[in-house]
């Protein structure tokens, strides 16, 4: 089986400071990878480098494109990369406001990606938008409401619908449950898990919340000061942490 996504020795510096250094891993189709670490450990830098929002200083980010097989997305031309970003890739931001157009209705938000890849039939676009709102548990009546009239959890679900409507194969998520209260978090995680399994998505989830990766991720990567300190199956890393930092991280989780 060939990997869907490969990262090779990805490095990003901010001046003299390390953003992330020598990160390598393979991601196979249908696999969910979690990246955990404390604030400032380089996880968001890594995610943004992989998703093409930041240009890495060294390393390769390979993606198994539909047309030409494995391609390095760093050296790819910008139009190609942006095309990838609105077809086979999706990016879920921590703050829904960053990923949504707040002045455009929910239906328009979901339809934007469809129109960006050439959909020009209003009825079809609207039908798909309503279908996707249903799949993320937003009432179809709210299709013409603006996201600013939605609760935080709904905004986040809307952002997910907007990203998944073109049937991407790889989803980047940056703290998808950050800033949501626990019951809303639980519902969102449930929904995400269902969608990931149902659509056979591959995903890379950056979070500092170990419960999130426990639920969603197959594999885990622990980062500290820009370096990957431990990788392995999620349960293995969380139940039997080897590296000192991972042990600290696991033992720091508050118990109710």
């Amino acid at each position: 089986m060939t990997p869907l996504f490969q990262v090779k020795e990805l490095t990003k510096f901010y001046g003299n400071r390390i953003g992330c250094k020598d990160v390598s891993f393979d991601l196979y189709p249908g696999e969910v990878m979690g990246i955990v670490g404390e604030s400032g450990s380089g996880k968001s830098t890594l995610l943004n480098c992989m998703a093409g929002h930041l240009t890495p200083d060294a390393g390769e980010v390979l993606f198994d494109t539909r047309a030409d097989g494995m391609r390095d997305t760093v050296s790819m031309s910008e139009p190609e990369r942006r095309m990838l970003g609105r077809t086979d890739w999706a990016f879920v931001h921590q703050h829904a406001r960053d990923g949504l157009r707040m002045g455009v209705s929910a239906g328009g938000n979901v339809g934007e990606r469809l129109m960006a890849v050439g959909a020009r039939h209003y009825g079809d676009i609207r039908e798909q938008a309503i279908d996707w709102l249903g799949r993320v548990e937003i009432n179809a009546e709210r299709v013409d409401d603006r996201p600013s009239a939605f609760s935080g959890g709904m905004q986040q679900r809307l952002q997910i619908a907007r990203n998944l409507v073109t049937g991407p194969r790889l989803v980047f998520m940056d703290e998808p449950t950050g800033g949501l209260d626990v019951s809303v978090q639980a519902r969102l995680l449930d929904l995400l898990r269902g969608l990931v399994r149902e659509m056979g998505l591959s995903a890379i989830i950056v979070t500092h919340d170990l419960a999130v990766v426990r639920l969603l991720a197959d594999r885990l990567m622990v980062m500290k000061d820009g370096h990957v300190v431990e990788t392995g199956l999620t349960d293995q890393v969380l139940d039997d942490p080897q590296h000192g930092y991972t042990q600290l991280l696991v033992s720091s989780v508050l118990q109710v």
Partner: peptide, 18 residues
């Protein structure tokens, strides 16, 4: 430059939906 004009149709979509 990159001919990304999907957004223009979002405006027309909003017109029709409203």
């Amino acid at each position: 430059a990159l001919e990304e004009y999907g957004l223009m149709h979002v405006k027309l979509y909003e017109d029709i939906s409203k």
